[in-house]
């Protein structure tokens, strides 16, 4: 008993000068973040480093042999494999179609639904509903609706005398179809971000402009739109990055076809890694994707800084 008391007293004595309040706080704080941090290192940062190493090897999942090949996989992608640039082109078209359409529609809906009036809640609920729906379910239903002549969309178009295309069998129409259905799925998210931003703009600004005789459009151009700029920038970057990550939608609606017309980067990585089992080449593609997203992020940061000054 006595010895135990003694040692603990001693321990306390020697510890006190070292364990200042500040140090204690630091240790506690690191303990608080440690589960998140350790998991992050194991399941995120480790794999991120590993993918760099994988990308420099020739490695087939089925036969299992792993050989160091330096930058051959990158050379293969960038200089030799014609599919790669086709995939990049598709990814860019996908993003350039999706982002403006999504943002324009989101803004229109937000303006229509930002003021409290009867029916606003109903419409907001409707436009947001696809966001909470699983992308798999959404893709399945639209694939069904967009079948050729027997498909529901074309049957309905036929009722008004329009001869709809064979949506998912023509490369260009298929690309348009996956873009539009994806926009419908996700536009609700950007809509509420815009609504939040619109609601934070003081009403006085617009009223002041109106008193000076500005038309609705002028008010929007000169007052609302500039004030929305930070939100627009954020939305643009999130949506662009998001568009590069789209996988399930493509996987289920078109499988990258027809004529590779909707083969985008995320799907191409999956296909190479988990259908052809080319681990090395797929890892090189993953690194390229990482670099693209990183560049987009840096551009965003630069734009933000310029906007701030």
């Amino acid at each position: 008993m006595a010895t135990a008391d003694d040692t603990s007293a001693m321990a306390r004595h020697t510890r006190v000068p070292w364990l200042t309040l500040k140090r204690r706080e630091t240790i506690e704080a690191w303990l608080f973040v440690s589960p998140t941090l350790i998991g992050f290192l194991i399941f995120f940062l480790g794999p991120l480093i590993a993918v760099v190493i994988y990308s420099m090897s020739e490695w087939n999942l089925l036969s299992g042999g792993q050989v160091f090949v330096g930058l051959a996989n990158y050379r293969d992608a960038l200089a030799e494999n014609p599919d790669f640039w086709h995939v990049i082109r598709n990814s860019v078209i996908f993003a350039m179609g999706l982002v403006p359409m999504n943002m324009a529609l989101a803004l229109i809906l937000a303006i229509a639904l930002s003021r409290p009036r009867r029916g606003v809640v109903f419409f907001r609920t409707v436009f947001f509903a696809p966001v909470v729906t699983s992308a798999v379910a959404w893709a399945i239903v639209w694939k069904f609706l967009l079948q050729g002549e027997g498909g529901t969309v074309n049957q309905l178009l036929a009722l008004v005398g329009v001869n709809g295309p064979n949506w998912l069998r023509e490369p260009d129409w298929a690309m348009a179809a996956v873009i539009v259905t994806r926009v419908i799925k996700m536009v609700g998210l950007n809509m509420i971000l815009y609504i939040a931003a619109l609601q934070s703009i003081p009403r006085d600004y617009e009223e002041a402009a109106r008193l000076e005789g500005a038309t609705g459009w002028q008010v929007f151009r000169m007052v609302t739109w500039p004030l929305l700029a930070p939100t627009t920038l954020i939305i643009m970057v999130i949506t662009t990055i998001g568009s590069f990550k789209v996988f399930d939608h493509i996987y289920l609606m078109t499988g990258g076809g027809p004529e590779n017309g909707t083969l985008v980067l995320a799907f191409y990585i999956y296909e190479q890694a988990f259908e052809f089992f080319n681990v090395g080449y797929a890892s090189a593609l993953a690194m390229i994707m990482f670099v693209i997203v990183l560049m987009l992020t840096i551009v965003q940061l630069l734009l933000r800084q310029r906007g701030a000054t």
Partner: peptide
């Protein structure tokens, strides 16, 4: 075969 079929598919679509 998987690569051959994958290479064939888009050209057959055409």
């Amino acid at each position: 075969a998987p690569q051959i079929l994958a290479a064939m598919k888009p050209r057959f679509d055409a």
